[in-house]
Design a protein around this nucleic acid. Sequence first.
DNA 1: ATAACGCTTCGGCTGCGGCCGAACTATTGG
DNA 2: CCAATAGTTCGGCCGCAGCCGAAGCGTTAT
Lengths: 232, 232
Amino acid sequence: MITVNALSEVAALMGDPARAAMLQLLMDGRAHTASDLALTAGITAQTASGHLSRMVEANLLAARAQGRNRFYRLASTDVAHAIESLMALAGRRAEPASKTAAWRRDPDLRFCRTCYDHLAGQVGIAVTDSLTQHGHLEPKGPRDWKLTGTGELFCQRLGVDLAGAKKAGTRHFARQCLDWSERRPHISGALGAAIADTFFKKGWAERLRRGRTVRLTDSGRRALSRDFGTSV
Amino acid sequence: MITVNALSEVAALMGDPARAAMLQLLMDGRAHTASDLALTAGITAQTASGHLSRMVEANLLAARAQGRNRFYRLASTDVAHAIESLMALAGRRAEPASKTAAWRRDPDLRFCRTCYDHLAGQVGIAVTDSLTQHGHLEPKGPRDWKLTGTGELFCQRLGVDLAGAKKAGTRHFARQCLDWSERRPHISGALGAAIADTFFKKGWAERLRRGRTVRLTDSGRRALSRDFGTSV
DNA sequence: ATAACGCTTCGGCTGCGGCCGAACTATTGG
DNA sequence: CCAATAGTTCGGCCGCAGCCGAAGCGTTAT
């Protein structure tokens, strides 16, 4: 297999409506069965199977067999990041009242969602802004942040698993991820994931059954106000 | 125009080999003529014209007519960012011995090459970092640098043709250009070109006959150490 | 004026790739 | 065992989109 143009190959994979629909479902960071993905994409199982193999082959997805099911998930945060940045582009189209896809207008999704394994939407931005405004995060390079001393302290008090986040192999620690609905960067990387975990563990937020939408609980609202000094 | 799936539409645009080739050429941040782009993509002018209109329509590119030429450039840094993250995915394919495009693994190319008319690769980054760390370059806007007072002095001492670079029409003076191998911006624009010229004129670097690879000479290494206070 | 050039539009050809039906494998459960 | 479920492979159909030749339009050069 001779690679003529690496960019076009990856983009073409994401460029098919059925595959794109599957990828968007997988943006919740969870693993889904082949049938589930086929249903979402509105195609038959055999067609979906072909799409999925191709995406695994290209390292966009990872597959794991379990019983008679096969679960697929995004292969890495890089994949999620690429998808997110493409969606940001799409959102930018200044078509005013036109039929922009429904999911794009869903207020709940814009309010809070998972972006692979970290928080996005208004809540993700609120958390990120709070961290930078209090001097817990400082810009470092074009696409990263640095956690300051006070930031470490803050995270420890909050119960964020910093140790776990720091020993995460080659993964970026505090990465900027462009939020497609808010059009500004929110915190991702190992730290972003650890913060999101804290939100879920403490019952501040809960994932909805299907899709990427996340609900901020009442205690979550209180935590935002009390611990982050912000509100949404 | 009904938008079924915003992600797939944008991705599909980038997923055509001809369009991808054009986009990659435009990743230098400069504007190129339609014919130039057609030539790069290996297609006829009329085919290219169709591709270009579609990408303008989708807000991926911006077009500007000038005389009997039409210049196209990337519409925004977001577009460049999306392309970069897709290329990062492609590069990441961990096929060890496989035919990942040869040019992508060539260590000499990663070490030093021309990016059109300025230096890229480890050497390009080393030069850029030296300039910023010594306070000769300061960030200005999202994609430019400003040459400071000490920077002007430094360039003059080095023998860089600043006067020539400054009177270069509409061209950006000190532009950030994202380095695909180092994943960080290096200096481009008129100043970047002038600096590269200096390297070639003084015999610090020489272009190889074929391709974009550049060889750093021994005197080039000495100059990096002596004048730039860095090494590669 | 006339020619050359750069780019676009139109029309028609062609091939790639997505799609499904049918058939096959593997796991689970009765 | 046999049936049901989940997934894959194969073969063939079909439409879309990319491609080019031809022709047209506006700009620049001579």
